[in-house]
Nucleic acid binder design. Structure first.
Lengths: 229, 229
DNA sequence: CGCTCCGTTGAAACGGTTCAACCCACGTGG
DNA sequence: CCACGTGGGTTGAACCGTTTCAACGGAGCG
């Protein structure tokens, strides 16, 4: 239990809260362990609460009528998901499955809402959280409708590079099939574009290891949304 | 001033609040009038507060490098926008211009945040608001990446019909060019698809007036995301 | 060894965009 | 009143990026 309190203190959503709040949260939070590939919830399921990732990874996605998937988000340690249905009172807007062995904390809707009612700081944290999410979605929508696949890929590679201090070498943290779904395309197309970027000397990729050779070139593609034939 | 308080009481975001809260809000809210086509803010502008539409209409959109626009949202009376940058502290994630003669209320960031700190009900309303927005975006992302243009158009027509009691006749509330941008496509494509839907007896359209002739057919297209050749 | 899963490559098909021309309703000004 | 330009909408033909379908290669594993 005390362990739970420590884990809770490490969650950004709960940063800046008092020790009492952390204790209260640890009392209402429920642990849940999942192997890789387990389903947390499905689109439309009634939302009885939300989750925080303690360790592991969770994939949030939508499935089309023909079974094609569009990944909305990967969530790692310290990030939360499923809050939307807590506040709208309607079903989950997407599916969630674990992308690795994962430990979660589940916070039931009613007790959490009453906790928010007592501490505005928690509410403000949650508002910031949802606002960041909205910003991310706005970017995703922009990319999907205004950029072509090479632009989205270039942006993702630069994002990965930026995450480890603008390193020239990056490692894909998802399979290429999953990356394709994250970029709103299919594995074949992703493969072809990676090959083309290699040919043009923009990158050097072998497996999931990718070296960025021409950063300005990639940045131009990420901006314009497309690359030369 | 009293007039402002009445307008505030009619805003869903502020429903369920006490009279004192409404008065406090009317004290910090600033009126702003705009003619059609005026810019409220641009992407990247520092967010010093957020807006509520009292009357008129506002368009929120993204612009690509080549100037193509993707509309994220139209906001009408009672709806608010620009809150995201209030809680993330970063610039606005998109552009906003008026789509008609419009009256707005502007709430400065700092005073509004302090108001939230005093009334959890206001915070919960705002959380519900952002959650609905997220749900809308998730749907938009799904449509853009998983459905083709006919599917999005069918869904939009059914949405319009649903707004006035599943009427068989609907009137487009935006120009076709704007509708194209809302659906993530261009006027030419929209025009062709409308013509095709006419040919197939799904709808009968003349100008901005559209009669739905085959609702089950449209629903199937909205579901599947595409139509027969 | 043979199986499956993931990734790659090729050729054909498709949906959508681009570019261009054209129509029409509308308002302006000679 | 009519000539004229303008903006929104429509249509056609060429083009382009992406998807689809199919085949294939290699890594991992029972």
């Amino acid at each position: 239990m005390f362990n739970t309190a420590r884990q809770i203190a490490a969650i950004p959503l709960f940063s800046g809260l008092s020790r009492e709040q952390h204790e209260a949260l640890s009392r209402i939070g429920v642990r849940r362990y999942s192997a890789k590939g387990e389903r947390i919830f499905s689109e439309g399921d009634e939302g009885t609460g939300f989750y925080v990732v303690v360790s592991g990874r969770v994939k949030i996605f939508k499935i089309s009528a023909e079974g094609k998937e569009q990944i909305l988000h990967f969530f790692g340690p310290g990030e939360c998901f499923g809050e939307v249905s807590v506040f709208t009172g309607r079903g989950f807007p997407a599916d969630a499955v674990t992308a690795a062995q994962t430990m979660l904390l589940f916070f039931p809707r009613t007790s959490f809402v009453s906790l928010i009612g007592k501490d505005p700081a928690l509410a403000l944290n949650m508002l910031a959280q949802l606002s960041r999410r909205l910003r991310h979605f706005a970017g995703l929508i922009e990319d999907l409708s205004l950029k072509e696949v090479p632009g989205r890929l270039a942006k993702y590679l630069l994002y990965l590079s930026g995450r480890n201090g603008n390193a020239g070498a990056v490692e894909l943290d998802v399979s290429k099939g999953q990356l394709a779904s994250l970029l709103g395309t299919i594995p074949e197309t992703l493969s072809r574009i990676l090959a083309k970027m290699n040919r043009q000397g923009l990158i050097h990729s072998r497996g999931s290891q990718i070296r960025i050779l021409d950063r300005p070139g990639l940045e131009a593609i990420a901006q314009e949304g497309k690359m030369l034939p």
